[in-house]
Amino acid sequence: MSLPEALRRHVAETWAFRRQEELDAGARFARLGASLEQLDAPEPLVSLARRAAEDERRHAGMCDLMARTYGHESSGADSLGGQTEDAAPPELGFRERVLYEVVAACCIAETESTAGLTSVLSVEGAPRVRAVLRDILRDEVAHSRLGWAYLGHVSKEGSVAFLSPYVPAMLESCMAPRLFAQGFSEADSSRLLAHGVLPSARKVEVFIQALHDVVFPSLERCGVDTSHALRWAERRRASGA
């Protein structure tokens, strides 16, 4: 891979971390598919959720292969994943909890994933890496659309304003643990991009920009006030952490 050891290790760890995220997302979508069916959501949205569960499991296999390509060795500490629990606040009713999870998982997490992957693919890189990223990106776009379609569907039936104070918590939960961590040098960051890894400084920029360009305006159009989330984003941008 012609990468210094520290960079190779970071790339391998990033792909291994993505594998875990994809496994968790697969379990979440499987649960959401069942919940949406229970709520008599439009059948196309139920089908999309179930297909998303399959997509994410396939993505996990791709990420695992990439991690091993860069030298990642699985250990007993590696989680098999796929056991994520309902992250919605317990005080909400079932219908509201499902909407919370759809917004957090699709409207926010999948939209942010789309933005990050698009940013990485804007730079020339290893053909094999780009092929994997393009495959994942195509599906993440569909998963994001699932969320916005369901939020729009529910908002036509009644108010979804109750979500407003919960959006900052959704943003916190979808952030990668090392999103705001100190990054590598500019030269090393360019090399990381070629291997599918968005440098830390760029992650912050992409994350916040996607909120302002896509997430916040779309939430507002559905009747979700984003003032709480805007203050959260400004604090994050100011602190860089």
Rank of each mutant, 00 (worst) to 15 (best):
A115Q: 02
P168G: 09
E37G: 07
S189A: 14
V197D: 01
E96W: 03
W232P: 02
W148L: 09
A241R: 15
S75Q: 13
G116C: 03
R202N: 03
S159C: 12
P177S: 14
R236S: 03
L179S: 04
A88G: 05
F162A: 06
D139Y: 04
H143W: 07
S185T: 15
A187I: 10
V11S: 00
V120S: 02
E220L: 14
G196Q: 00
P42Q: 09
A210M: 07
L179F: 01
A149W: 11
P199E: 00
E220I: 12
S155G: 05
L99K: 11
S74Y: 14
G93M: 10
R145Q: 14
E21W: 04
M175S: 13
V98S: 00
A52Q: 07
I136R: 07
T14P: 00
E220N: 08
V123E: 07
V11F: 00
E85S: 13
F94E: 12
A60D: 05
F29T: 06
L65C: 04
E157G: 15
A67K: 02
R58C: 01
H10P: 04
Y166Q: 12
L219W: 06
D213K: 13
P44L: 03
V132N: 00
D78F: 10
E101Y: 02
A238V: 07
A16E: 13
R9E: 15
R134L: 13
P199D: 03
G33I: 05
C63D: 10
E205Y: 09
A104E: 15
S122M: 11
R97Q: 13
R31F: 00
D213R: 13
A176N: 08
S200N: 15
A201N: 10
R95D: 15
L219F: 09
L198D: 03
R178K: 11
G223A: 09
V197A: 08
A115G: 00
L7W: 02
C63I: 00
L92D: 02
D225T: 04
Y100L: 05
L192W: 06
T14Y: 06
G61S: 09
L193Q: 01
C174I: 12
